[in-house]
Design a protein around this nucleic acid. Structure first.
Ligand SMILES: [Mg+2]
Ligand SMILES: [Mg+2]
Length: 203
RNA sequence: ACAU
DNA sequence: TTATGT
């Protein structure tokens, strides 16, 4: 029989966490609607499971929803800790089975707003796909950056005049002028599909 | 209002 | 609650 004492993980309950006894765990769980919890054979296993979270092992929502994103694809996103930056951006490959892999990450670039970062991310994605010879679409959750891309120019009110941010914007616009938009650039439907996989999680 |  | 944008 199981004479070893179990350890309990509570993901959803009054106070989520890892508990050494069922008495403690049940207090977090009993009478709590939609509570999620499970027993593990050791403290280490329980803490690992708690860190992995409830969604561990399950494909992300975008891979399961009926009208999800086309795959394979490249998703991009930018993040800036402050209103005037500095912005960083990255690109994440999306595969049909729900796996993801970061393929580039740039910044933080001083003086660039989040919108400017979203724009640079799109141009970087187009360059990367072209260079790799891949015919994937690009997804962004930024309507602003998509609009700027169509116009071939980042219409930001905060354009740094010198430094790496200024250079990056000039280079991106120059590349766009030469090459146009050689891949489909599609809107990511955050409401239906969840946060874009390239998101930094800083919110 | 919408998106970030 | 602040800012970046259409
Ligand atoms: Mg974004
Ligand atoms: Mg984001």
């Amino acid at each position: 029989m199981s004479r070893r004492r179990k350890v309990y993980v509570v993901w959803k309950g009054r106070r989520p966490g890892v508990y050494d006894s069922w008495d403690e765990a049940r207090a977090q769980v009993e009478g709590f609607a939609d509570a999620r919890y499970k027993a593990y054979p050791s403290r280490a296993a329980a803490e690992a499971a708690f860190r992995r979270g409830l969604s561990a092992g399950q494909p992300p929502a975008w891979a399961l929803v009926p009208h999800g994103p086309r795959t394979p694809a490249l998703a991009v996103d930018a993040a800036a800790p402050g209103p005037q930056g500095p912005a960083a951006y990255r690109g994440v490959a999306l595969y049909p089975d729900g796996r993801t892999q970061e393929v580039f990450r740039v910044g933080p670039l001083p003086g660039l707003t989040a919108n400017a970062g979203e724009f640079l991310a799109l141009v970087h994605a187009l360059r990367w796909l072209t260079q790799q010879g891949l015919d994937w679409p690009v997804y962004t959750d930024s309507r602003i950056a998509r609009g700027w891309l169509t116009q071939g120019r980042a219409r930001t009110r905060h354009r740094p005049q010198r430094g790496p941010g200024a250079q990056a914007l000039r280079q991106a616009e120059a590349w766009l002028a030469r090459h146009g938009i050689p891949r489909a650039v599609l809107p990511w439907d955050t409401r239906a599909w969840g946060e874009i996989p390239a998101d930094f999680g800083h919110k």
